[in-house]
Structure formats: structure tokens, C-alpha cells
Design a protein around this nucleic acid. Structure first.
Length: 425
RNA sequence: GUGAUUGUAGCUCAGGUGGUUAGAGCGCCAGGUUGUGGCCCUGGAGGUCGGGGGUUCGAGUCCCCUCAUUCACCCCA
């Protein structure tokens, strides 16, 4: 029988890599705290309609990438969450049905599921760190979200990132622009690729971010979305840009940036890294004021948020050598026993050391002393404690410092103190 | 869903035009040191050559199918 493998697009994470996750998570928790964000956890699945309404039924995510199933024959269709924003908004609305609540600042580090073909920086189960600011979407709020995201990157030591930003305007602006774009593209219709021709009908804005060089050439001369935005919207966007400049956050206005999810409006942004290969977006976000009503909320709740791909973050950090300082920590002591007959003594001693707060490893496989010493070395143990007939009889034990190779003989009671003292250095 | 790529020991990989018992490095185990690691030396274990079918006297090598991997497209974090 063939051995089982992890499901396509799903990854196991072992201790060597977990230390990286812990490190990044720690940074995220401390930086979000600086900005007053608190963690939120929502269910991994939601009713399918939530995503259809929230993300938009014409998007690829909803159209072909969701893991959807029926829990029982007559049950409602359920979907493993492909993103977090819709779920967080749903949770918020469910908790605060009447609205009229103060601003909420929430962050999450959560697993998501998308049925895509895996490739570099893309998995079917993946993790996003993200933050949502609910109740305001003022220029100050937008900049707070962006600056939180950038500060996380900065604290992690990432460099060479590019922040791209654009305004998508409101619904009216966009429909006006849609027509203008169609008028511009009409003459080039035959030169567009098949996908773009289809988008011409359904969602012409998405032609803008095509990767096809021929299409990019055509699109380069297209009218700009920003020019179709009403003066108020334009003024707000300029304030966002002003605040960013004030904060020394470098950005680049990208007229071709249109986010793929339907709920975005006004300011949208993304951060790309050249370390990532084809899937170069490290994070992205924007305002989504329209989402709350789309999900049945009684009032429109202004909101801004962003999401960052954790696996991509790890790839980029790895490429920049930012994990070098993460040194593995071994046990403070390894209890080495002379022969298997002393196992009981060794276990008792290990127990005593652990109760005293000393991280302790011991041989569990009844192996030779040489093998035990090798194991101690492999585990990067600080000390070896020898347990033999003589020690048990006399109550005095040999403790060897595995860095310096120095040995001392000590009464058992003195050992925890020595070990705890030495690990402070 | 489409295209390409790769699949040989636990890991990283060698194995011109098909030819006898399939190799290396690292790792693992043991010994050299009958109570002592890291270095060194010696030895050992470990392989349905992804799976199935075919061509052939003979297939790791050639052909077909299949599964899996990786990268890219689509799209997105």
C-alpha cells in the first residue's frame, strides 16, 4: 500500500520551522498591541452565501476556488473560509446588531483554504495575518492600517518592499470609469487575449492588471481610474498620500492596481516583494465600506483592513537571511545513565531536576553511554549528568559542561542551583 | 482547469548510445575508547529505481498510461 501523503497544497510544519512562526507571531502581537488592535478568532467555516455575497460571485475565489460541502443532506452549504474579512465582518455584525458601537480594531492570524493549483508562495491551506479597523475609514484610519502593516515588515527587518496604492473611487465612479475604459478598449478588442475579452464584458477593470505583455501595452494608454473620481474622493485620497509621506512611508501610485475582491472601494493598496517569484504580493488591503450592508447589516459600517500571507512572509525573510539569529535552544542538562538497570534512578533524578525548573532530557531507548553522549551533543544540551553505580551509592554526581568539557562532582541537591545559575550567563 | 518539469537509500543527488551483484556524500547504528560527546579511522544496516502495462534475450535507462512533485498561467496573500 502506498504511504499516505499530506493533501495536495497542505504542508506540515516541524519544530525547525515552528521557531520562525513563533518569532513572527511574537512580532505581530507586539506591533498590533502598539496600535491598539486585539485578536479575533472566527470559525474556519461559514455558510457559503456569506462568501458569495461578501467577496462577490463573479470573482475566481468564489467561482472556482472554494472548498464547499454539505454537512448533511438537507443542511445549508458550508465553505472553508477562503479569506477572513467577510467572516470578521459577519461576526462583528452578529455581535453588534444595532450598530452604534465604538471603533473596533481587530487582528487575526488564521488559516485559510483555496482550491488552487499549488506553486511557489501558494498553498491550498495557508495562513494570513491581517487587521481590520471597523467603524472608521477616514484617511487617518487608512494610514493607520497601512502603517501597522509596514511596521510589522520593518520590525521583522524586511527591506526592498514596494507599497503600491490607488483609489478605486465609489460605486458611481467605478461604473463611470468602466464605460470610459470600454470605450477606450473597444478598438483594441481583437488584440486582447481570450481572458481579457471575457473580462471586457464582465469586469473590464480587471483587464488593467493583466500579466500579458500585449495587454499591458494596450492598457498603458488607458484613461486613469483616478481621473474619474469625484473631487471629495480625490481629496480624501490625497490626504491619505499626504499622511503616508508625513510618516516617511514610501509609496507608488499605481493606476493599474485594482484589487480582485468586490468589496473594496476607495483606497486600495498592496505590498510586493521581488523575493517571491511569480506570486509577489506579500500583502494587500483597502477600504470596504460597502461590505456591511452587503452582508445584511442595517447600517453601513466604514472599514479598512489588510491581509498578509504568512508563508510568503517566511519565504521573503528566508531569502533576506532574517532568521539567522534564531538559534535553537537545547536542554540545560542531559541525564546519562551507565546502564539500563539505572533507568529508574535516572527517571527520578530527571523528575527532580524538572520540578526545580531545569530543562532536562534523558535516554529513553536504553542505549550505550557513547550513544547517549552523542544524543546530548546533538540536542545541544548544556551539561551531561552521569548516573552510575558509584553516584547512586555515594550521592555525589558528576556534572560535565559540554561546552568547556569541565567536570565537577556535586551532591544531587546542589545540581539544580548550578544549572540554573549557569544558564543565566 | 491549462502548460511545462521532476520522481533512484532517511536527506541531497550520480547512474553517455538498454547489458551481469544500482553508487556517492551527509545522516543513522556499531566498534576503535569494557563510565564520557563534538574531530578522526573502520565496519554495518538501509533501495518494490513513484505505480501499472508494453517493446526486448535483457529496462533505472526506450514507448504508453497513471499517480505524485515543482514551477508557470488563471487568480490571489
Amino acid at each position: 500500500m502506498a504511504q499516505f501523503q499530506a493533501v495536495k497544497g497542505a504542508k506540515d510544519i516541524f519544530p525547525e520551522e515552528i521557531v520562525r512562526w513563533h518569532y513572527i507571531e511574537e512580532v505581530i502581537r507586539s506591533v498590533t498591541a502598539l496600535y491598539g488592535f486585539s485578536e479575533v478568532r472566527t470559525p474556519v467555516f461559514e455558510y457559503t452565501e456569506l462568501f458569495q455575497r461578501g467577496i462577490g460571485s463573479t470573482t475566481d475565489i468564489v467561482g472556482k476556488e472554494m472548498f464547499t460541502f454539505l454537512p448533511d443532506p438537507n443542511g445549508r452549504s458550508i465553505t472553508l473560509r477562503p479569506e477572513m474579512t467577510a467572516g470578521v465582518m459577519r461576526a462583528f455584525l452578529q455581535k453588534n446588531p444595532g450598530g452604534g458601537v465604538p471603533v473596533h480594531k481587530l487582528y487575526y492570524i488564521s488559516d485559510l483554504f483555496r482550491k488552487e493549483r499549488p506553486q511557489a508562495g501558494r498553498q491550498r491551506q495557508f495562513t494570513q495575518f491581517g487587521a481590520e479597523l471597523l467603524g472608521v475609514s477616514s484617511p487617518a484610519a487608512v494610514v493607520e492600517a497601512i502603517s501597522l502593516m509596514m511596521q510589522v515588515f520593518g520590525t521583522l527587518g524586511l527591506h526592498g518592499l514596494k507599497l503600491r496604492i490607488n483609489s478605486l473611487g465609489d460605486l458611481e465612479d467605478r461604473s463611470r470609469y468602466r464605460e470610459e475604459l470600454r470605450r477606450y478598449l473597444e478598438p483594441y478588442r481583437d488584440e486582447l487575449d481570450e481572458a481579457s475579452r471575457e473580462r471586457f464584458e464582465k469586469n473590464p477593470l480587471r483587464i488593467l492588471d493583466s500579466k500579458n505583455p500585449a495587454v499591458q501595452g494596450i492598457v498603458a494608454g488607458a484613461p486613469k481610474l483616478l481621473d474619474c473620481i469625484k473631487p471629495e474622493g480625490r481629496a480624501e485620497f490625497d490626504r491619505v498620500l499626504g499622511y503616508l509621506a508625513d510618516r516617511d512611508i514610501a509609496y507608488e501610485v499605481d493606476h493599474l492596481l485594482v484589487r480582485g475582491l468586490d468589496y473594496y472601494g476607495h483606497t486600495a493598496f498592496e505590498v510586493v516583494s521581488s523575493e517571491l517569484g511569480a506570486q509577489d504580493a506579500l500583502g494587500g488591503g483597502g477600504r470596504y465600506d460597502a461590505l456591511s450592508k452587503e452582508l445584511g447589516g442595517s447600517a453601513e459600517i466604514p472599514a479598512v483592513g489588510f491581509a498578509v500571507g504568512m508563508e510568503r512572509l517566511i519565504i521573503a525573510m528566508e531569502k533576506q537571511g532574517l532568521f539567522a539569529a534564531l538559534s535553537p535552544r537545547g536542554p540545560q542538562v542531559f541525564v546519562v545513565l551507565q546502564d539500563a538497570g539505572l533507568e529508574e534512578h535516572a527517571m527520578r533524578i530527571a523528575d527532580r531536576l524538572r520540578r526545580a525548573g531545569v530543562t532536562t532530557e534523558t535516554d529513553l531507548a536504553g542505549r550505550s553511554m557513547k550513544a547517549q553522549m552523542r544524543e546530548a551533543n546533538r540536542l545541544l544540551a548544556g551539561f551531561a549528568l552521569f548516573v552510575g553505580q558509584d553516584e547512586v551509592a555515594s550521592g555525589n554526581f558528576t556534572l560535565k559542561n559540554l561546552r568547556t568539557s569541565e567536570q565537577v562532582t556535586l551532591a544531587l541537591d546542589a545540581i539544580p542551583g548550578v544549572l540554573l545559575e549557569s544558564s543565566k550567563l
